[in-house]
Amino acid sequence: MKIAIASGKGGTGKTIVSTSISMSVNNAVYVDMDVEEPNGAIFIKPEISREIRYTVPIPEFYEDKCIYCRKCEESCVYNAISIIPQAKKILFFEELCHSCGVCKYVCPVEQAIIEKPKAIGTIRIGEKNGLKFIDGILDVGIPSSVPLLSGMKKYIPNDEIVIIDSPPGASCPVVEVVKDSDFVLLVTEPTPFGLNDLDIALDIVKDMEKPHAIIVNKSENNNNLAREFAEKRGEYIAMEIPFDRKIAENYSKGIPLLTEEYKIRFKKLVEDIREGKL
């Protein structure tokens, strides 16, 4: 079973929740798919046994073979190619390319376009005290994380409990992660910003018909914003984590929520999800 920890707004506590859950239950797999700033490793401190440089194919153009027919330029829906017949030049805009391969497919000349691998990030596989660990690190300057996310999925084992630390936001990377998950835990904070973005994230999760529940982090007894929001939208709050200086101090030292009390609560949460009670 794959449980994705998502949020909408960044900085609400996805990583502390997902690492804490992973370290509380037995034989889990923790997958950090927040590849633009993966920080689960800071908390889990895994021993990395394998590093894979992940590549996508991109075209390389050979001006001496090209007949300047412009078929590739016209076929490229991402507008990544400019063929300049008058100057016998080809300009390729790598950052616009989606590695679809259509340019090579439509090219009538052999060897005018050759696909070359381009590294976009690193996938790391490791382990810590029986907890399997996988994370992805997107290279600096790569405009989209989606290809790396889809590449990471090949390395996720089909274990009983897979906890996925999702990227923040409510766009393509989140959709890429959530679409293969069986359950989504949405971590929010009881602030207008947290709830505004949770509202958008909930729309996505509901649109994809994924069972889900909310975790309120930095919760305060006298702050009912998140509780009122959940009631209004008919959503279930599975857990509240208090706004506590001690938690923040530990977090700053790379220590997740691992007191006996929390271990029991997180175990129960995962049990409830697996038994379909949420």
């Binding site: 412009r70 507008n79 990544a80 400019s82 300049i84 008058q86």
Partner: peptide, 29 residues
């Protein structure tokens, strides 16, 4: 368009026989 509009329009210009362009500052592409 969602992306690569600069490339698209520049391609249009070079393939429609224009010799000169007048406009605001174009993007880098």
């Amino acid at each position: 368009g969602t992306g690569g509009v600069g490339v698209k329009v520049a391609n249009y210009i070079i393939n429609n026989g224009y010799s000169v362009v007048i406009g605001p500052e174009p993007g880098p592409n």
